[in-house]
Design a binder for these strands. Structure first.
Length: 643
DNA sequence: GCCGTTTTCGGCCCGACTGTTTTCAGTCG
């Protein structure tokens, strides 16, 4: 865990403990906001903490929190954090983190029943004492039991690339239902976060078909992929849906765990531990579609910011649209029956919207440019400023998938890929690329079938032959390269004379991924400074939700990459997304070039490009700073400069 | 605890759903 994450975690803990102790919710919120600010920072918090003034420039950090953060950086811990831990047992926070249990309930369990751990909570369920709490009935207990089961199965966040196809399939099936006008996945999935807690889907009904929305809710709840229905209302349905976790290539722990569970229980039940993900589906009238999409895309922090702006203009923004304050307030006074008929009357009585059909309309009505979903994290995209300074990247330059014209990191059957050189090249051409680099593994990656020097020499000739053929036939450039291992001491896995024969060198760490930060920094700096290296591949080697990878001093790597004209890779595989978004932001701010590569092993890996581009957009990467967007001429010249 | 083209004090986004209640507190996003 990086220092930024450790500091953020302490602030979050403080907030949670204060919450349980019933302290002022705005103070709690302030700590949570500061925690998010710290974890979303693209610079090292220790650097920032050296200058209190700089720290105070960060949105959401005031004098008191600045002191706590400085304390955390200097001493490793915050005294207040330790003091609160003496008051609130750690297990109470475990209980609080259960789905459906909030601060009030957790506090009541702890103070009246002595529940200070998950096992003790289970005991109070078993002996029935949990039922003696106020507002605690049979159903509430069932909900808590389900939450305990989920927590035990470790079903927390899901990798973006696993949730994506589930969201698309669900959206597609809803799109086919009668009366439906538009369907769009929202939430952190739409923002391209590397992991998501759930899938949000916004559905708009055609004008005149609003009443059919309830049928859509019914159909969603009874869809075959649904494992469990959590919530079923007129405008919102929450379900848990089955997920295919195909992690074969990654020696999956998930499929192993899931398989035993499904074998024991062939028909998934509501308590099945098979991998599922929560999906929240909302239905709104078409006139509210943009408002609902904006609302449920978030982030929460972004929405708070936008709403505050609306308020300043005497307007109310909610999932139904943008309204005049007084008109919305008058509408809220009216009461409607809590059934389908009442809901229809409610929709009809809604005041006139200033905007609501599209997101663009809403932002425009607030005199704002509509920010790309990926940047809606309240990091300056609304005000155009961060900490009083005008932000560097212009939103209109943000990279898109269509800008990508080259793939510079791909494997073939020569090492651990599944395509031949020609198959790989033709697929690249089919996807509209002008250049594909063949970069099989180097000799140290024995498990991946890394090429020994003699095999690499022959491979270079094979690649050249395919290039000659396809360049004549399609105008495609096929480059010979290598994903060469950066060994533990920072030396590369081939001798310089061999590397010099390659058109492209992607240098990546594959082993010794638990090195301490100082050693890792030295190692990677050495590779960056190597005169034959073009791209630093998946710089940290992390696997999302699997292993943390290296924690080098990213600011130093970025500065060195800029100096030596090395591009830092965003590995687009959803298991890696390495560089991560915050690192990309730091690299962009420093004017460093970025490569977005799919690390192709099989044909479908090209599809992962969307995740790499989303990560790039989260880091505000302008098109011009991504080497994969350059023309063939510019890209090839850039590569040749090191030959 | 933070923040300020109305404020250095007094705000702080806002609605849906559920379960346990007979009108609403708690939780979530």
């Amino acid at each position: 865990m990086s220092l930024n994450d450790r500091v953020a975690k302490q602030l979050e803990d403080i907030a949670q403990m204060m919450e349980v102790l019933g302290e002022d919710s705005f103070r709690v919120n302030a700590h949570n906001r500061a925690a998010r600010a710290v974890s979303g920072l693209s610079v090292d918090i220790a650097e920032l903490a050296k200058d209190r003034k700089k720290l105070l420039e960060v949105e959401g950090i005031g004098p008191k929190l600045a002191d706590k953060i400085i304390e955390a950086c200097e001493k490793g811990t915050i005294a207040e954090h330790a003091a609160l831990k003496d008051k609130v047992p750690a297990g109470v926070l475990d209980v609080l983190n259960l789905n459906g249990v909030g601060p009030k309930t957790a506090a009541a369990m702890w103070k009246t029943l002595g529940v200070d751990s998950l096992p003790k909570l289970r005991a109070t369920i078993a002996d029935g004492t949990l039922l003696t709490l106020p507002r605690m009935g049979e159903k509430a207990v069932e909900k808590i039991k389900a939450a305990l089961a989920l927590a035990a199965a470790g079903e927390g966040r899901t990798r973006l690339g696993l949730a994506w196809p589930v969201a698309m399939a669900l959206a597609e099936s809803i799109r086919a239902m009668p009366g439906v006008a538009q369907v769009e996945p929202a939430g952190s999935l739409r923002r391209g976060r590397e992991t998501v807690a759930d899938i949000d889907i916004v559905v708009a009904m055609k004008p005149g078909h609003e009443a059919e929305g309830e049928r859509v809710m019914e159909r969603v709840a009874s869809a075959p992929i649904v494992a469990q229905v959590l919530v079923r209302g007129l405008t919102k349905t929450s379900v848990r849906v089955h997920m295919d976790a195909d992690l074969a290539r990654w020696g999956s722990e998930e499929t192993a765990a899931t398989n035993t569970a499904t074998e024991a229980t062939p028909a998934p039940t509501s308590t099945s531990t098979a991998k599922t993900i929560q999906a929240d589906v909302r239905v709104v009238p078409l006139a509210s579609f943009g408002a609902a999409l904006q609302y449920f895309t978030g982030s929460k922090e972004h929405n708070v910011r936008v709403r505050a702006l609306a308020q300043q203009q005497g307007l109310t923004l909610n999932e139904w649209g943008l309204f005049k304050d007084d008109e919305w307030d008058a509408f809220r006074e009216k009461k409607f029956k809590d059934d389908a008929q009442g809901h229809t009357q409610m929709l009809a009585a809604m005041p006139k919207r200033i905007a609501g059909t599209t997101e663009e309309d809403i932002y425009a009505a607030l005199s704002l440019a509509c920010p790309a979903p990926e940047v809606r994290e309240d990091r300056g995209e609304v005000s155009g400023e961060v900490g009083g300074k005008q932000v560097a990247a212009s939103m209109s330059d943000l990279i898109t998938i269509a800008d990508i014209r080259a793939e510079l990191h791909a494997h073939t059957t020569a090492s651990d890929g599944s395509l031949s050189i020609e198959e790989l090249a033709r697929e690249a051409h089919r996807r509209g690329f002008h250049t594909i680099a063949v970069t099989d593994h180097s000799q140290s990656s024995t498990i991946a079938g890394g090429l020994r020097p003699d095999r690499l020499r022959k491979h270079i000739k094979d690649v050249k032959a395919v290039h000659d053929k396809l360049h004549a036939e399609l105008g495609l450039t096929v480059l010979s390269g290598s994903e060469v291992d950066i060994l533990a001491d920072g030396t590369l896995d081939y001798a310089d004379d061999l590397l010099a024969q390659l058109d492209v060198v992607v240098a990546s760490p594959h082993a010794a991924l638990t090195q301490d930060p100082a050693t890792a920094t030295k190692r990677l700096l050495k590779a960056i400074a190597h005169p034959l290296v073009h791209i630093l591949g998946h710089p940290t080697g992390r696997l999302i939700l699997r292993r943390p990878g290296l924690e080098p001093a990213m600011a130093e790597l970025i500065a060195a990459a800029k100096e030596h004209d090395v591009a830092l890779e965003i590995n687009a595989h959803w298991m890696r997304l390495d560089l991560r978004d915050t690192h990309v932001k730091a690299a962009v701010d420093a004017g460093c070039d970025i490569a977005i590569n799919c690390d192709v092993h099989e044909r479908t890996d090209f599809d992962n490009l969307r995740f790499g581009v989303m990560t790039a957009r989260r880091g505000w990467l302008p098109k011009a700073s991504c080497v994969n967007t350059w023309t063939a001429k510019k890209l090839h010249a850039w590569l040749k400069r090191k030959r």
